[in-house]
Design a protein around this nucleic acid. Structure first.
Lengths: 172, 172
DNA sequence: AATTATTAGTTTGATATCATACTATCAATG
DNA sequence: CATTGATAGTATGATATCAAACTAATAATT
């Protein structure tokens, strides 16, 4: 049960109104997003440098996909990390060179290159996972879960709005 | 005055709890950010292509800074668009080539290159501004102002958390 | 069964990004 | 006023990004 004061707190917070219009706010949110993304990248890159590891932030993004689900194809990875499939060719090439993953042609659909983590890739996971976790814990510290959830909803809604509009453009 | 039902609505929305932990939510927010950013870029790039204009999204970002405040130096622009200063050399070079801006050495501090919009740059502004506005209006449509404000707060807090941590790393 | 459309991946080329090292200028300190 | 430190910008090289054109394999349609 929520107390009267909690309720009041919520409402007060909601009532404090920004004088800028929605468009300006959307702009600022966009800018904040880039900034945060950069801090995330810098956070990991500092760790990479500190430990003198031969891997890039972008390659780690791909590894993180595979730690979650091994043996997916390049297009699936591209969709998750939101990059072009030709970037995948480039980055997976580099990961193969570093013995972090291996390409295997899918027997069921020979168009697919299934990407599997190697033993060395697993070692990397053991080393990196605590850092990534730590990074997100740092990022999220002192923020209520519900607020993050709300923010995700807002950003997703914006993406959907833009996606829908893009669809229209294609039709026209 | 907020009605009982409005109050209830706020609370209900806040109470719907995501089962994932904060860290996972922070991760998802990060991913959403990239996606939204990509849609913004694609939105503008579609317009550029449609009108066969010789300018990139990145250059437009810089122009948008100058439309807001003309005659700032390259470092100031870099801070606003959150890019390296060497990227500024590259992008401003390209804008100068296209006659959109001009570099002028600051008489008061000869280290500064002050960047001014040219007449052609003003024409571009007239053409592009409605699109950018339209884009953000599209993005923000159907979202309450207060929710965007809240999201900005969340993302800024995360950036601050990461910035503070980075500071520590430098000390150590 | 043949044709067409779709999908996964690669190649290539243009662009953008950033770290690093460098020059030039200004500021601060002794 | 000389030295040291900080700041703005540039040059360079390595990496990453994406669009477009392409090949190969599969799915859908006739």
């Amino acid at each position: 049960m929520i107390s009267y004061y909690q309720c009041l707190n919520f409402i007060v917070e909601i009532i404090i109104v920004d004088t800028r219009n929605t468009t300006e706010l959307a702009r600022e949110l966009g800018r904040c997003l880039i900034e945060m993304r950069n801090f995330l990248r810098q956070y990991i890159q500092a760790k990479i440098k500190e430990h003198q590891m031969d891997i890039s932030f972008e390659m780690i993004e791909i590894m993180a996909c595979l730690w979650n689900k091994d043996g997916i194809n390049q297009q699936e990875i591209a969709d998750i990390v939101i990059k072009d499939k030709s970037s995948m060719t480039y980055l997976v090439d580099n990961l193969v060179k570093r013995n972090m993953v291996s390409r295997k042609v899918d027997a069921d659909d020979r168009r697919n290159n299934l990407i599997y983590i190697t033993k060395e890739g697993r070692l990397l996971q053991k080393k990196l996972n605590p850092w990534i976790l730590e990074m997100y814990e740092t990022a999220a510290s002192g923020i209520q879960k519900t607020k993050i959830t709300q923010s995700i909803k807002v950003v997703k809604k914006m993406s959907e709005n833009l996606k829908a509009e893009k669809g229209l453009v294609i039709i026209m």
